[in-house]
Write a protein that binds this DNA or RNA. Structure first.
Lengths: 97, 97
DNA sequence: CCGCTTTATAGCATCGATGCTATGAGCTGG
DNA sequence: CCAGCTCATAGCATCGATGCTATAAAGCGG
């Protein structure tokens, strides 16, 4: 718990920096998308190699994506979504008036 | 109408090519996102210069984005969404069982 | 007509994702 | 024990988005 609050304090300091909040959000998004793709893949009982074939990329690219270490591009997300029979939703949602 | 069906036929042929469907979808998404950002900006009575300031980019980058000629990256979308007080939603939606 | 604002476009350097190949670790079944 | 599979990581070249500056066209108010 001590580490947790230390990290929280550090993160808040970093977030106060210009652009940090967006950078963090993009990294978190990458991580979540990676997890979602892995979950959908495993639901189908597919290996990374199998998904790579369907999405026209290599197994190592799938592994890298699922690890969430990089922020993916939209075309790659489209290919993965199509391969998994899912739909990629990207939208700017204005706040309710 | 004649041109329309010609274009439709050509598009279907192009779509049959591997990767074309995804590339088209990403390009269409870029175009729609550009339009959405312009609409949100104009709702606020903002100029491109004003939005650029809020999103920490230059006016020409905003113009280029709104034109939809390039597929934007997620960090840029995050910055624009935050600047406009909107929320960026990105998700892989699995088909209903 | 002029100054200002707004928008669009061009050109160029940079950077990070992507594509690829290779490789290693771990696990499993034979 | 070994082959095969799966997954993760590394390294490198390529490519396209991004950042930036500059510039031009259009419109508007004075």
């Amino acid at each position: 718990m001590g580490e947790r609050s230390d990290w929280g304090a550090l993160r808040e300091r970093r977030m106060a920096e210009p652009g940090a909040a967006e950078a963090y959000a993009a990294t978190r998004l990458a991580y979540e998308l990676g997890r979602t793709v892995r979950a959908l893949r495993e639901e189908r009982g597919w290996s990374q190699t199998r998904l790579a074939e369907a999405a026209e990329m290599t197994q190592s690219a799938v592994a890298r994506f699922e690890a969430g270490g990089t922020v993916p591009t939209l075309p790659v997300l489209e290919r993965l979504a199509n391969a998994l029979g899912a739909e990629l939703v990207v939208q700017l949602r204005a706040p309710a008036a």
